[in-house]
Write a protein that binds this DNA or RNA. Sequence first.
RNA 1: UAAGACGGCCGGACAGCCGCGCCAUGGCUUUGACCAUGGUGAGGAAAGUCCGGGCAUCAGGGGAACAAGGCACCGGAUAACGUCCGGCUGGGGCAACCCAAGGGAAAGUGCCACAGAAAAUAACCGCCCGUCUAAACGGCAGGUAAGGUUGAAAAGGCGAGGUAAGAGCUCACCGCGGUGGUGGCAACAUCAUCGGUCAAGGUAAACCCUGCCUGAUGCAAGACCAAGUUAGGGGCAUCAAGGUGUAUUUUUUUUAAGAUACAAACCGGAUGACAUAAGGCGUUCUCCCCUUACUCCAGAGGUGGGUCGCAUUGAGCUUCGAUAGCAAUAUCAAGCCAAGAUGAAUGGCUGUCGGUUUGAGCUUGCUCAAAUUACAGAACCCGGCUUAUAGGCUGUCUUAUUUG
RNA 2: GGAGAGGUGGCAGAGCGGUUUAAUGCAGCGGUCUUGAAAACCGUCGUGGGCGCGAGCCCACCCAGAGUUCGAAUCUCUGCCUCUCCG
Length: 127
Amino acid sequence: MKVFILKKRKDFVEAAKEFKVVVNGVVLQAALSLSPICDDICFVGYTATKKLGKAHVRNRTKRRLRAAAALVMPKAGMKGVKYVMIGRHNTTSLNFAYLTRKLLEAVTEINKQICEKEGKDVALADD
RNA sequence: UAAGACGGCCGGACAGCCGCGCCAUGGCUUUGACCAUGGUGAGGAAAGUCCGGGCAUCAGGGGAACAAGGCACCGGAUAACGUCCGGCUGGGGCAACCCAAGGGAAAGUGCCACAGAAAAUAACCGCCCGUCUAAACGGCAGGUAAGGUUGAAAAGGCGAGGUAAGAGCUCACCGCGGUGGUGGCAACAUCAUCGGUCAAGGUAAACCCUGCCUGAUGCAAGACCAAGUUAGGGGCAUCAAGGUGUAUUUUUUUUAAGAUACAAACCGGAUGACAUAAGGCGUUCUCCCCUUACUCCAGAGGUGGGUCGCAUUGAGCUUCGAUAGCAAUAUCAAGCCAAGAUGAAUGGCUGUCGGUUUGAGCUUGCUCAAAUUACAGAACCCGGCUUAUAGGCUGUCUUAUUUG
RNA sequence: GGAGAGGUGGCAGAGCGGUUUAAUGCAGCGGUCUUGAAAACCGUCGUGGGCGCGAGCCCACCCAGAGUUCGAAUCUCUGCCUCUCCG
């Protein structure tokens, strides 16, 4: 599974519409990509709001999320899904192993939601 | 040894594994949001955007007046500055040293609440003389600014003389001002001499006056490339002389048709060359010079782009090198080349050694354990200022105490 | 990244350097009216500290900290926060 990074505002807005899971350390949003994907690829974007602190704090938050995602996403990511990770106030202070575990929980949870929804959609289309 | 004053510097180090941006080279049997190798990769404040520049666009430049804004003891440094250095004056500190938007209130205007007699040519109480009366502490007419309460502030201070009572009315000293000498580039200091209504408070971070400085907009400036959309209308000038109009004339019985000339009202056309005109960036005027696809009003598209600007040569940085200077700094010499992203690159984990704090142990400066290791992230680039900052290193000086 | 505007009780929002500003409105609380409510009318109403048995009185606070002034919500400087604009 390859991981590509989201850079455009449009992608972030799209991801925010559908699914959302909150765990200690990170808020995860996700959506199925609209354009057809042939390869084994998922997309990830990182965000930190101004509420968290000054510039160096926000940068650090995104770096930690990036480091954690590098371990988790290649295994847990689903094909053709856009994930967006939003940093929280304690993202910088948490133990890294704990943060990784929590992120994995969030991803598996959100994948489950997507599968349920998609199953229904397919059923309706068949009818 | 203790307390303090003023500078200068540092802002953890090393190793391993997994990753990131940019650049160079190479690879390809997926020419890629690819792979490999090598190089390189945040700060003293990168911050605030408070000043000063470079650079870019408004075509370029000179002059005058006004407006707006800024600066303000004196001299120097600098590309420039509101910065820096040296000095002066005033204030604070035993001292080292520190602080000051520090020009003008005898150019003018405004404001000074409450209180108080009075907030600026005054006179409430008081003091004193004269006079009315038998007399007065009462009335009248004066003199006076010593004393009074108030207030942030009451038209020099203090002492003596003087006087009816008083008053720079007179005098000494201090203070203030003018003139002259001396020292200094100057601010200013100092000495001499003259001045008594020497002078009429405060406020200019109130208006203002004086002197000096400033064109506007900021890299989202701006240049180029690619793709795509759109609807025109009004006004001005010139040209031609089309239609219309008027006049003359030819043919003709007339209608009518043709030709020539004129006009510029209407309709339509072309052009925006010269000239004129307009514009040229705070306003007005002016001198060059320049521009004009005339000028004004509408309308459509656009927040999916890309490349350059942009990052090795500059007001460049470093030097406990030299020379000049008290210094800021300048000149010369030597050395150095040092991030370039654009949802934005430096992270995660581990180990060792440091620093700090706390606790324990004793060999009293070591060992062990735990915690902690600031402020903070380049976005066109420089020079400053301001603000944030764990902890540490280092130099010079002052005061006090002790010892020699 | 750059360029501006603002910050006053719980909320909105006035405020010439001066007696006591905290105007005014909304909200809140109490009352009148009503069977009850709304509307209307009347009164009251910021926070913190100190003193007082109590009624009440005094001091400080207009985002924060300095400065100018006899005296700052107001004038000047520095910082913090909020909002707007740029192609």
